[in-house]
């Protein structure tokens, strides 16, 4: 429907429509689906996201590889009982991101958004903003649709896979999606949506994928936690009127280029980064992974 994001933004502005609404129209015309069907599907997605982002908050879990499982609860308890540095709201979001990462690593049910490794960021954003603002479910669903459009652009022009683009493609994409969704839900302008998405990508451009022992556990979980921080900061900057001088499409293109230049040892192969530290190798050996 649109060749590039500038056209997308222009179309939204000319027709006085939000990015979320135009995303809905595109999805309806793509598969000939009604608004009701799409909203019903989004609600099923939302339900799983709600469960996964809360399950770990008050429970000790144990992941398949045993590397993670208690972090969400630790952070949640710390937030409730102590005066934290980052503040209550942001920490509650981070705890939720950790929760989904844990559920994923324990073979629980999650929504790949856009991937399983980065599944914590979108739900953490949604259920923390819901606690803070009185948003209707419809506003949330439109925000999700906007995030879908952002993810689609990245998937098409670059990649959303850690094996292809490093973690910038997974947690970076998820943070960009969440940042754009926030701006859309809070009534920011269409160009602000994409400024926010650009900031989120730029913040972690070049981030490698180096899972310890090759498992989607650590450092994935903490990158999900920081991913939701990234989304909030990026959205706030855009809403404050800060602009990215590099248009979103070009940010995505450069992210793609960076991903291509990244050595394969740093792209999900667990042959570099944290995975090949002394401790990383020991963990792998102790788990009996060859």
């Amino acid at each position: 429907m649109f060749d590039n994001t500038c056209e997308f933004i222009d179309y939204c502005i000319k027709n006085n429509k939000s990015v979320g609404l135009v995303s809905l129209e595109k999805e309806m015309s793509k598969n000939n689906l009604s608004k009701e069907v799409i909203f019903d599907n989004l609600k099923s997605v939302l339900k799983v996201m709600k469960e996964s982002s809360h399950e770990g908050l008050d429970k000790d879990m144990s992941s398949m590889g045993g590397l993670i499982g208690t972090e969400a609860k630790l952070l949640e308890e710390y937030r409730k009982t102590q005066k934290s540095l980052s503040g209550d709201f942001i920490l509650s979001a981070a705890a939720k991101a950790l929760s989904t990462s844990q559920v994923n690593a324990c073979m629980g049910r999650i929504v790949a958004a856009p991937t399983a490794g980065a599944a914590g960021i979108m739900p953490a954003m949604i259920f923390s903003i819901r606690e803070k603002y009185d948003l209707t479910e419809e506003q949330i669903l439109y925000g999700m649709l906007a995030s879908g459009s952002i993810g689609k652009i990245i998937a098409t022009k670059a990649s959303i896979s850690g094996a292809e683009g490093g973690c910038q493609a997974e947690c970076g994409s998820a943070a960009a999606m969440a940042a754009g969704a926030l701006v859309d839900m809070l009534g920011g302008s269409p160009d602000q949506v994409f400024h926010a998405a650009s900031f989120a990508l730029i913040n972690i451009m070049g981030l490698i994928c180096d899972p310890v022992a090759g498992l989607v556990e650590y450092p994935c979980n903490i990158r999900n936690a920081s991913g939701v921080y990234n989304a909030y900061l990026s959205a706030d900057m855009a809403l404050a009127g800060i602009k990215s001088p590099i248009p979103f499409d070009q940010v995505v293109e450069s992210m793609n280029q960076v991903g291509n230049l990244m050595h394969t040892s740093l792209k999900e192969t667990a042959l570099g980064g944290l995975a090949t530290t002394e401790a990383g190798i020991k963990i792998k050996k102790d788990l009996g992974i060859k």
Partner: peptide
């Protein structure tokens, strides 16, 4: 080039931890 839909990005709903090693 593949044309992605919203639910390719917000989905699938799956049991973790890995789309390739578990869902695949």
């Amino acid at each position: 080039m593949k044309e992605y839909g919203i639910f390719d990005i917000l989905g699938p709903i799956m049991v973790g931890p890995s789309s390739s090693h578990t869902a695949g």
